[in-house]
């Protein structure tokens, strides 16, 4: 187990390095730069700025400087705002992770319950209703759904504020963010639950005199969760790091919004830091889901 972990972490370091490499060079290969704004700077000012941020050096050297600073924990300052990048990033992540965490929890709990219900009432009305809804939420783009939510609950019904600092303003972003993963988890759970329920060990459990509820929740559900866990790892990574669309529609200063802003601003250190951060989260979540996999299914060997 520890050997496996060491191997996985080393591999993760390699992946993150490769991602840095690609991002750095791709970012620089695009024409234009951080200081090409509509209000032209004087050549002298521009040269000073470029020198200040080492942008006048050859690209290979720039990369080495960046990597060295990064390894010392220095992600630099934003070329746009001049603020410290690590601080900005953590602030944004806190906002995204709060909404994303609630949404992910919602998606898993509600998704598993609805999926199990759909499997139990297969081809009866609860199943049909659940499958209708999941198809709807899988198919509807998040910008449509988020806008609809805002229109109905904030503008028409006035149940919730469009924006304020209270927790009530988190309700709609959480729903908008959770809709797709909930629908997906529901469908996944239904399929794997149906598969589990048709297995021989379910018949064995019934033949022992185990009650129907226990057959479903002890014997079938744990087996049915195995595919769901595979999905939950990457899903968590996506959802915690924020959604550009949802954050923009609800004006939330999260990581998703920050990332896109940094790209439009050509804010090089910000792009790098955000990318690395997303990559690390993705790698960690994948590792966690693999470990969780082993916990649920004893047949899995982790080497």
């Amino acid at each position: 187990m520890s050997k496996y972990l060491v191997k996985r972490i080393l591999l993760a370091v390699v992946s993150v390095f490769v991602i840095c490499l690609i991002t750095f060079f791709a970012m620089n290969a695009v024409p234009g730069g951080p200081f090409n704004s509509e209000k032209a700077l004087t050549p002298a000012v521009k040269a000073t700025l470029l020198e200040r941020f080492n942008l006048d050096k050859p690209i290979g050297q720039q990369f080495l400087i960046y990597m060295r600073n990064m390894l010392h924990g220095d992600f630099g300052i934003s070329l746009k705002t001049g603020r410290d990048i690590s601080g900005t990033l953590l602030e944004c992540f806190a906002v995204s992770a709060k909404i994303g965490g609630i949404a992910a929890l919602f998606a898993v709990i509600i998704g598993v319950i609805l999926g199990a219900l759909a499997a139990l009432f297969r081809n009866k009305w609860p199943d049909r209703l659940i499958i209708f809804l999941t198809t709807l939420f899988t198919a509807m783009p998040s910008f449509v759904f988020a806008t609809l939510l805002l229109m109905v609950f904030c503008i028409q019904l006035k149940w919730l504020p469009v924006w304020d600092a209270s927790n009530r303003s988190l309700v709609l972003p959480v729903i908008a963010l959770a809709a797709y993963p909930t629908a997906y988890v529901t469908r996944l759970t239904k399929t794997s639950m149906l598969d589990a329920l048709s297995q021989d060990y379910i018949r064995t459990a019934r033949s022992k005199g185990v009650s129907t509820v226990k057959v479903i929740f002890k014997h079938a559900l744990r087996n049915a969760l195995i595919p769901v866990i595979t999905y939950v790892g990457p899903m968590l990574a996506y959802i915690l790091t924020g959604s550009l669309v949802v954050e923009n529609i609800f004006s939330i200063g999260g990581l998703g919004k920050q990332f896109v802003q940094s790209i439009t601003n050509r804010d090089y250190p910000m792009i790098m830091a955000t990318t690395i951060f997303l990559a690390v989260i993705m790698v960690v979540m994948n590792l966690l889901s693999d470990i969780l996999y082993k916990v649920v299914d004893p047949r899995i060997k982790l080497d």
Binding site: Q199, G209, V296, D297
Partner: peptide, 22 residues
Amino acid sequence: QDFRGKKCSIIFQDPMTSLNPV
């Protein structure tokens, strides 16, 4: 439920799949 297992038990053809793997 009370009858199954207590009054009458059953074993199946395929022991490979009849036990819950988890």
